[in-house]
Design a protein around this nucleic acid. Structure first.
Lengths: 233, 233
DNA sequence: CTGTAAAACTTGTATATACAAGTATAAAAT
DNA sequence: ATTTTATACTTGTATATACAAGTTTTACAG
């Protein structure tokens, strides 16, 4: 009995994505689900509340849980997701080129309290064009060693599966800027006068900051999709 | 005993924003909070989970609830928020100009199933410059009448307080486009070659779609800030 | 003094119960 | 047939209990 409600969440979310429950219809009632999954109603409710938060359903008191249309937010994703996970959807159309990888002294304020950091610059290719420039700074304390090969694949995968760390949350900022000389040199800007800059601070399970990233996207290839619930006042 | 955990959430979130609980420290334990607020531990946990979702705290098993730094996401906001609510923070530096307001037949696919819709175009002024063009389409079924004055103030406020409807959630998309002739005519583009377009579909409590919005921002004045938790797989 | 083990904390999960509140359905009254 | 009323069903909230799992502190053995 360890991750029961998370398993139920996973099963239900996958069922909704697979179309087993159609958009606009209601899920079985909480009591029915409790019987089906051999769980208490509270456990079911935890799973349903997760579905609600992530935009799968809308709960209406007295009526039931209405299945929402997830197709809009299926791709790309909101939340913390890596280019590697994104490229799995695009298959062989993506490539990562490591243009810089060095252990340095922390000169800037980006990862305060850290003495030494990894600095990684990667150019992301999509369909043969250089679209994204990712400039990462990792805490050496959290990530002791890093190789070219790891950077070409997924650093997140390495961190989570090899180092056993759990990436938990991120603060993110999206702004539009003028392309730098570095952008013009490393990316195929294709005449774009602007660049989309996503700055993010990523934290581990224990709330320690371990990564600062500046992800610089060619504007015509950028799309951010979000689901948000209105905060009650 | 109706909105106990929501009240506790509100009190705790305001305390954190006010700095009563300092960043990096832990909140009182769940059992202590339960005593303080005269509530059960489960009720406290519901409030704490809301704080966690919204980026106020990070819960660590065995340790406690660590207070996070909210200053980064304080302004501007993520989630569903209106220009009116935003302008309250900027005071008298903002102005809204209604450039179009008419009840029309629904011609496009934006609000499917609707026969008649309100179409509202508004130019948002910040510090004397025309920065944002908001193009809204409202369901006439949900919003029977609309006046110039309502549009100059807050349509959301009118909908929630006068019509008694509850805005619940939204799907949102952010992309970068070339400025249209309309953009060039109605906004002070200040030499910008791009425009930030936020397309959003807003839904009521019962999951009915009632609004489609295209919010077009001058790129140098645009900033989107987000807090996101990593989805477990 | 040091290292280990136990105890005392913390949050995480699962269950059961009770009632409130909103919606839909069926029965009854008109 | 229509309206009203009662009933059943739905989700929302609050509480209590038990145990699991992770962290910190304390006690103890060496």
């Amino acid at each position: 009995m360890k991750r029961k409600f998370q398993d139920i969440y996973k099963q239900l979310s996958e069922s909704i994505e697979a179309g087993t429950f159609q958009t606009g219809t209601t899920l079985p009632s909480e009591n029915e689900l409790a019987e089906n999954y051999n769980a208490s109603r509270e456990t079911i409710r935890k799973a349903l509340n997760m579905l609600s938060e992530h935009g799968y359903i809308q709960k209406v008191q007295g009526k039931g849980s209405i299945v929402l249309d997830m197709s809009r937010i299926n791709f790309p994703f909101s939340g913390v997701i890596s280019f590697q996970e994104l490229s799995q959807k695009l298959g062989t159309r993506t490539k990562t080129e490591v243009v810089y990888l060095k252990k340095e002294h922390a000169t800037d304020h980006q990862l305060k309290g850290e003495e030494r950091v990894w600095r990684v610059h990667r150019v992301r290719h999509i369909d043969g064009e250089r679209i994204i420039l990712d400039k990462d700074v990792f805490s050496v304390q959290a990530v002791p060693h890093l190789t070219n090969e790891i950077c070409e694949n997924s650093i997140y995968d390495f961190i989570e599966n090899n180092l056993g760390l759990t990436i938990s949350f991120a603060h993110k900022e999206i702004v539009i800027e003028e392309p730098s000389e570095e952008d013009q040199h490393l990316l195929d800007l294709n005449g774009s006068h602007n660049i989309v800059v996503i700055r993010s601070f990523t934290y581990l399970e224990d709330a320690t900051l371990f990564q600062y990233t500046e992800s610089r996207h060619r504007p015509d290839k950028f799309r951010f999709v979000d689901f948000a619930r209105r905060v009650q006042t």
